[in-house]
Design a protein around this nucleic acid. Structure first.
Lengths: 217, 217, 217, 217
DNA sequence: CATGAATGAGTTTTCATTCAT
DNA sequence: CATGAATGAAAACTCATTCAT
């Protein structure tokens, strides 16, 4: 018994009222996080904003951390969903089209509650999962295999993938704050696809299928 | 002027004794930050670790924030210094060499007290300067002009520069935590230069100096 | 709205338990104020004396000042009540009797917790309401009209009233500390009535009702 | 050796520089008292304002209280001086003229640094001497004897004197804040003399010198 | 004497968390 | 379940005062 779990939700709300309470609590948490910042997030404030009693929070969550963890989990899930939607709608084709799809999926993932996203990635101490978790929504595992088909030299493939992932994520993420216009206009996506494509194209093993990916004409 | 400045140091220590005190305070701050994390950083703890009285902290700094701001300022300064050193040692040459130099400058900037660097970029709420400030050390303005000589299409140059900066910074930064081996071996630098070079080469205006930068043969 | 209100109570206690807590807090405040003085009044001391936790104070009051403000408000209210009681019991009659009633009302107002009264008027910085508020209990507006019936020359009436109020209040107030015996024996009231009566009688407009107030024989 | 004297100045400054320092300290004290109030008066602030080091304060005063005590002593002294000047210039004559002189002396006493006076009487905890000390400047002992010559009934004289003193002081004092115009125009003095005269005239023992004081025609 | 520096002992205030109803 | 109330523990910050030079 080292220490009690401070992150897993306590009990699943079974009745309607309970579920509404939990929703209210999480909504309030998000609101305060965005509006006042992590430093000003207190359980009492959350309760007040949610219109419930502090004690009610502890009925469903073992502590403050659990609140944030759950909110974060949901946020990631939503981002992932958005990304999946894009990937599902448009898949396959030329290298460029695959990359574009992935970039757009990433952008979509970052588009859900961007303010909240920002708070999570800028102000949250403990939650390191941010990037990797979001990235799973960003460049999904499925996509990885598509790419490996283009034939990078063996030792490189994993590292190259990491490079792309890292660079692409950072560019999209920073753009939210620093280049919102380019994000909206699509110029940024264009540019990012360019960067990734040129990078990966240079990786292709020359030979039988030189200059072309599997499905490329 | 709603609230008093909570960030600017209160008074400069003039004697040796107080200069030592301030040093001790900042050292203690860094230690606690790295060792216990931002959440556990309290003025009392800092004072205790520094072997001085809490009040002494408040003689020179208006509060906790100022402590962090000053530490951060110094850290940035050191990183910038390291980057400058690299840039000064090796400048000019082919596009690839220029990029390599810049990447290495960036890596050097991130190499000073990497633990502290990590805390600053992961756990600090307000201080936004982190990236941009560090980046100034990372890809200095001088370097920018070198690149623009390679002839990117006019409207792109600024955006392209931002892309490179953002991507490169993120890659180096994340690598500290996620790929320390690749950083040490130089493989990461190699790969990053590759990415940047391919990206920028594709930007070159075709024509008289197509395929070559000014100093390229 | 430069700074938050530091004086208005934070929330009303709704249950019996908390009402008791608030009472305990205010009682403790009064005790410490009287026993140890304003300078020694600290929220911690109050909490300890009240047998509650410091935090409980801050649940109902935004700070030390609010504690004092509320205590003061109640004290004024009590004084006013005492004065009203006297005025209600005995009203009308000759000028002398009216004045006597008013003086006695004022004395009654000062008789509730005189120690506390003294602390309030001697040691309290900001609270300016002391005199004027207490005075409203002392020489009530109703009384004023009675007096004006005696026919002071028009321009004087307001100023004369202020004189009487100020002088009478000070005499009663100081007497608590400096002449408690005269207060108890009634000699002071006698003397004060004398002073006021002679002063106001001199103000009467000569003529038809010279020498006599409306109800005077 | 109960506790060290915290009120008496430590040493008389003998050299010119020292005396200047002491002056600067006291001036700064007065300034802060008036400008920022008693609550914000700290030794450090005083020192800074005075342009000297905190420790210098402790060279001449045993503590904060002594600072205030000395300032107060001087203030009283000045008030007394002003009163004496008035009394000296104009003495003797009819009852009315004597009273007027005294009232004017009192007003003069309150006219020296009225802001400081207000702070002393409103915000100072310990110093109870305020009123009585100021009053000695207000209605000096000499004046008392003049009055007793008018022949009040024996048991009354002392109490009557206290009444007049108390009432007159309060009226003048409050007028500074509440009726500055009446003070300046002389209307208040007029009224006050009226009040006192009527009061004391009523006290005269009837008989041989009924209706007239010694020097009255 | 004067000063920069230092500090002990406190002050106000906050907050996550639990308890009684 | 829900809530008003309560609290332990600690946080930030202050200030009168002393010391070493």
């Amino acid at each position: 018994m080292r220490k009690r779990d401070t992150v897993t939700p306590r009990k699943q709300p079974s009745q309607d009222r309970s579920r509404a309470t939990v929703e209210a609590i999480l909504t309030a948490t998000a609101y305060i996080l965005v509006r006042h910042g992590y430093a000003r997030l207190t359980t009492n404030r959350v309760a007040q904003r949610a219109g419930v009693n502090v004690a009610s929070i502890y009925q469903f969550f073992p502590g403050k951390e659990a609140l944030l963890a759950e909110l974060h989990r949901r946020h990631i899930e939503q981002g992932r969903g958005a990304a999946r939607a894009v990937l599902a709608a448009h898949q396959g084709g030329s290298l460029e089209r695959v990359l574009r799809t992935m970039v757009e999926a990433g952008i979509a993932a970052h588009a859900v509650e961007p303010e909240l996203h920002r708070v999570f990635s800028e102000q949250m101490p403990r939650i390191k999962a941010t990037r990797s978790a979001a990235s799973e929504g960003f460049l999904l595992e499925e996509a990885r295999e598509l790419l490996s088909a283009w034939g990078c030299a063996a030792p490189d493939v994993e590292r190259a993938w990491w490079m792309m992932q890292t660079a692409a994520h950072a560019v999209v993420h920073q753009a939210i704050v620093e280049r919102p216009d380019d994000l909206r206009s699509g110029a940024l996506a264009e540019e990012l696809v360019l960067m990734l494509e040129r990078y990966i194209r240079g990786k292709q093993t020359p030979g039988p299928r030189a200059g072309a990916g599997p499905e490329d004409t």
